[in-house]
Nucleic acid binder design. Structure first.
Lengths: 195, 195
DNA sequence: AAATGCAAACCGACCAGACGGTATAGATGC
DNA sequence: GCATCTATACCGTCTGGTCGGTTTGCATTT
């Protein structure tokens, strides 16, 4: 009864017009517009056009709603990664470089959602557990299999640094500089270590 | 009247027992113990031993209190950086490497406070403006003057990545790995670019 | 040096509003 | 008519902030 439809959406869009997704979209809009501290149920109600009852029917609590946002984000990220990596192994491209691309692309596309996740995390860190698990799963073997694991790790860290700094509004890098950094990162993980 | 003692404390510890600092300490303790979402005025009141009136006398609003936390943190960071860099130029050490060390040391020492700042930022991003300004001031010329600016930027980004991931509880790096990364970063910014 | 005056510092009860959540009634499709 | 949703009114709590009053440090007066 608590989860009339279970947490993971079973019927993506068939009969159900994906009410949950509409609500999640609204929540994302609220966060990106007013900041993650202003993510309140009433705000989502206002933004989504649904009533409070409707929202709370689909997400029985605020925590559930945030979990919904997080899990949708993770799903998206995992798809991005898996898809890109699959393509990379098919074409023989460098997996580390591929992952860097994915991270930076993700940064550009899902900035707002990631912010929400971040905010949620600061309040209840356990919400980040699945995120951490996903990151570990994807990265560890890539790093381990890289010709220069330390360098691979550094490159991924730098990409993360770029991403996170951007999320926090801390990055003051120009697009040109960022392009240079990106190119250099790819180069660093592509050639075998000089040492 | 609004700032009977002005914002920057004039008398560090002489006559005035630095009430503001006592309150800020309490706020930091609250955040590090209960998480940044639980940073409430009443919690600070309980933790500090002052009354609500007393706390709100020194920081007229919660926002002011958070600003106080941020500005004290910035002051600390700036001191750390300036001191280390001064020493570096005196001994001829690599400034980029020095800054990396400072970033990572800061991560270890002020983890809790930085978390609070981060959390505060996600609610009202403008609170991070001074942080951004400080980072820009210190970094830009270092990067510009480095023999390999792009590499320097990458190294600093990686250090940031490490720091931020840790703050968010996202990092799953072992101490050994971290040491390796650190050493390699130093090495990367120490030798002239191979290309 | 004791008394006086005054403002800065501090106290704690109180309030208004926001927020998360519930209860219950109404709509809609099968 | 039953299950699945959606809408509205409402409640209890928590929290930021106010306000009148009390204490404390300190200079001035006598």
């Amino acid at each position: 009864m608590t989860d009339a439809r279970s947490i993971a959406d079973s019927h993506p869009d068939t009969v159900r017009p994906a009410t949950r997704d509409v609500i999640l979209d609204a929540a994302e809009r609220v966060v990106s517009r007013e900041g993650s501290g202003r993510l309140t149920i009433d705000a989502v109600v206002r933004e989504s056009g649904f009533s409070k009852g409707g929202v709370l029917y689909n997400f029985p609590s605020k925590q559930a709603l945030i979990e919904g946002m997080v899990s949708r984000l993770i799903l998206q990220a995992q798809e991005d990664c898996d898809c890109a990596l699959e393509q990379a192994t098919a074409t023989g491209a460098n997996p580390v470089a591929t992952l860097i691309h994915v991270i930076l692309a993700f940064k550009r596309t899902h900035r707002d959602v990631a912010m929400a996740v971040l905010a949620a995390a600061s309040e209840s860190p356990e919400l980040l557990d699945p995120v951490r698990a996903m990151m570990a799963r994807i990265r560890n073997d890539i790093i381990a299999n890289a010709p220069d694991p330390v360098m691979a790790r550094i490159a991924l860290l730098a990409a993360d640094g770029l991403h996170l700094a951007d999320l926090l509004g801390l990055d003051m890098i120009t697009p040109d500089e960022q392009e240079a950094v990106e190119a250099r990162l790819i180069q660093l993980v592509s050639e075998p270590s000089p040492k």
